[in-house]
Design a protein around this nucleic acid. Structure first.
Lengths: 218, 218
DNA sequence: AGTCAACCGGAGAGCGCGCTCCGTTTGATG
DNA sequence: CATCAAACGGAGCGCGCTCTCCGGTTGACT
């Protein structure tokens, strides 16, 4: 009809339905298995052929971007909120704990935030927005005397990685096990302290540790 | 000739030469890439066909066992030596640091010690010998008042995992970066302390962190 | 109702992996 | 030197993965 309709036409109803199914399935699959689950898996979960997945998201990266666009924004908001704590130490502590929680709840987020293997640009931009906030968190907490003066912003990122890795390792056996180690690491980050702050939850027993090692593959 | 020669005959000279080459190649390959490098890789490194590798080591596990038999013994010796420190805290500290160093130097050792995906029995036996020593280390360090009283043996294993993961992450960019975090975690493990103990080495700068994220795949 | 572009599913090409099989080569032995 | 079990290498099978292609189907629009 009208020759000039270059803008995006809405999807056909079935196509839109499938698009949503795929996003939902991909979310679940990524959360459980990380960003490297197979496209077949996602298609199967969505009750759809692989062809359909590829038609809507011709590259894996596009699927990832569509899924995580808003979740990345949440991270930025989270970091910003950490700057509003009255006690700057609480800002750091809350940040480390919340960020680790996110990683444990969703393996996909972990892969996305700590690697640049997928979805390069978008993630990079997010990181660029978070970095200065983390540095400000560190600066304030050091000024208040609570955070040891010899750590810097990049150390915080590596702490996140460390704790996220631990969360990954123990997830299947004791989903809350990582919280103990957040406490431990935070005690290491304090400038000086008397008694150690109590650790959250119970330690793994020998059998649980065995189970962890048994089901983890490198 | 003599009918009853059931014992193992020595290998032909070329076969023995190849066996050694394969072990050497596998050692290098595992150290760099972990226990899941492809058999083709190992064969190529050894300058040998895959068939030859499989002839000598019909299952991957056998190759791993042959390679790590004595290295596992070294770990036991290491743990035992930690009990000889005059100050029990030094025992813990040295153990955490040495064990992490081993993991960073050899990715294969890391996979072997922290997972049960390969070489089940042998590793399990080794772990069974190490566990009580670690528990004794913990007990003594706690009795001396240096180690916080709320950690247990299994926590130490998870600390090893955490630091090993970090070593893995940063290895390519800054092979010594993990040492900072050993210091950090050890400060978290102390019962009480004044000034934080100085961290080893320089922190990563922003570009190095970027490089780490860029080359890591989950 | 009829038309047709958009959409669907899944077969299959291409790839790298673990592992096997077999025609050829080599070193030990008399 | 002749013999032959032992060892060699790599082609090849089966598998699971990514991504493409195409014959059949379906929803939007007249």
């Amino acid at each position: 009809m009208c020759a000039a309709a270059p803008a995006e036409r809405p999807l056909r109803r079935d196509a839109e339905r499938n698009r949503l199914r795929i996003l939902e399935a991909a979310h679940a699959a990524f959360a459980e298995g990380g960003l490297e689950v197979s496209m077949d898996d996602i298609a199967r979960r969505a009750g759809v052929g692989v062809g359909t997945v590829y038609r809507r998201f011709p590259k894996r990266e596009l699927l990832i971007e569509a899924l995580f666009e808003q979740r990345l924004e949440e991270i930025v908001v989270l970091a910003a909120r950490m700057l509003e704590h009255d006690d700057p130490w609480d800002g750091i502590a809350d940040f480390v704990e919340s960020f680790t929680a996110i990683q444990v709840e969703d393996r996909g987020m972990r892969d996305l935030l700590l690697s640049t293997a997928h979805a390069e640009r978008r993630v990079e931009r997010t990181r660029d927005r978070i970095t200065p906030m983390v540095e400000e968190l560190v600066r304030r907490a050091q000024a208040s005397g609570a955070l040891r003066p010899d750590v810097v912003g990049t150390d915080v990122a590596l702490v996140h990685f460390m704790l996220g890795a631990l969360g990954d390792y123990t997830r299947e056996v004791q989903p809350e096990a990582w919280r103990r180690f957040v406490g431990l690491v935070l005690d290491g980050l304090r400038d000086r302290r008397d008694a150690p702050s109590p650790l959250a939850g119970a330690p793994l027993d020998a059998e649980q540790l065995d189970a962890v090692m048994r089901c983890w593959r490198p």
